[in-house]
């Protein structure tokens, strides 16, 4: 079982709710993914509007756990206030904490992230920080009280998969008791499997499913990819080698003679 702040889950796939062709496809895809946790955001409601109510009822119908994000926040103050708005709106102390440094790469502002996480944890939040793969940053987040750390595989929406495998592996080795989630940059089920094979506890993705030609089928493919990766990790992967090693026995090869 997978644990996020004392809550247990069987699915190791967390999925976003944005960018689907329609609300109905979003719901069907989320169900097909098997995900038990979905991410949502907070946005301004136009005067006279009630579009938030419509979206919220779709999410409620799914019966999943909601993880609100602070997407788009560019300062500690914005992120902290958005987290408090999320707690008020969704009745949860969970927050996917994003503090963004740059519009083109959506690179996390790791300094602001640590500062915001520290403030929020003191205020009783359970923080899921979206961060880079930098080990020192992850350590600061853990020191601040984060039980979950969510490094990117690659920039959000880039579909490039795990760019810095060695750094992600180091995080896994050095933070064995922290729930680690690869968040962002996953483009294919094989990328998700890769993260799980490295020992990551889960993956969080959105665009790769929502923007697939058939989001529902792709959601199912990701479910299988995550399961395959986890089972492979538990089974224990062999070590990589630099040179070939025959799988078929050499002894008894026809016409074979021992080198004298």
């Amino acid at each position: 079982m997978l644990t996020f702040y004392s809550k247990q889950f069987s699915s190791r796939l967390l999925i976003g709710t944005a960018l689907y062709p329609s609300p109905a496809i979003m719901q069907t895809a989320i169900r097909a993914s098997g995900a038990q946790i979905v991410t949502v955001s907070l946005r301004r409601e136009a005067a006279g509007g009630k579009s938030g109510d419509a979206f919220w009822s779709l999410i409620r119908e799914l019966g999943v756990t909601v993880l609100p994000n602070t997407a788009g926040c560019r300062s500690v103050r914005e992120a902290v206030t958005t987290a408090k708005l999320a707690r008020e709106l969704f009745g949860t102390s969970w927050i996917k904490l994003e503090v963004i440094a740059d519009n083109d790469t959506l690179q996390p502002d790791v300094v602001g992230l640590v500062e915001a996480a520290t403030i929020l944890i003191k205020d009783g939040f359970e923080v899921f920080p979206y961060c880079t793969e930098d080990f020192s940053v992850a350590t600061r987040l853990v020191d601040a009280g984060c039980k979950v750390v969510m490094p990117w595989a690659a920039p959000i929406g880039s579909a490039r998969g795990i760019i810095n495998r060695d750094a992600l592996r180091l995080l896994r080795d050095r933070l064995p008791d922290i729930t680690l989630v690869v968040d962002a940059g996953i483009g294919a089920p094989s990328h998700a499997a890769h993260a799980l094979e490295l020992g990551y506890d889960a993956v969080l993705l959105n665009t790769a499913v929502a923007k697939a030609k058939d989001p529902v089928a792709m959601a199912g493919a990701f479910r299988l990819g995550v399961e395959a990766g986890r089972v492979a990790f538990e089974a224990g992967l062999m070590d990589a080698r630099d040179f070939a090693s025959p799988s078929t026995p050499v002894v008894g090869t026809p016409f074979w003679h021992a080198v004298s």
Binding site: T17, L42, E45, F55
Partner: peptide, 10 residues
């Protein structure tokens, strides 16, 4: 004043 509602997010 900020008036905020739930929305789609990743």
């Amino acid at each position: 004043i900020e008036i905020i509602t739930p929305r789609q997010g990743g």
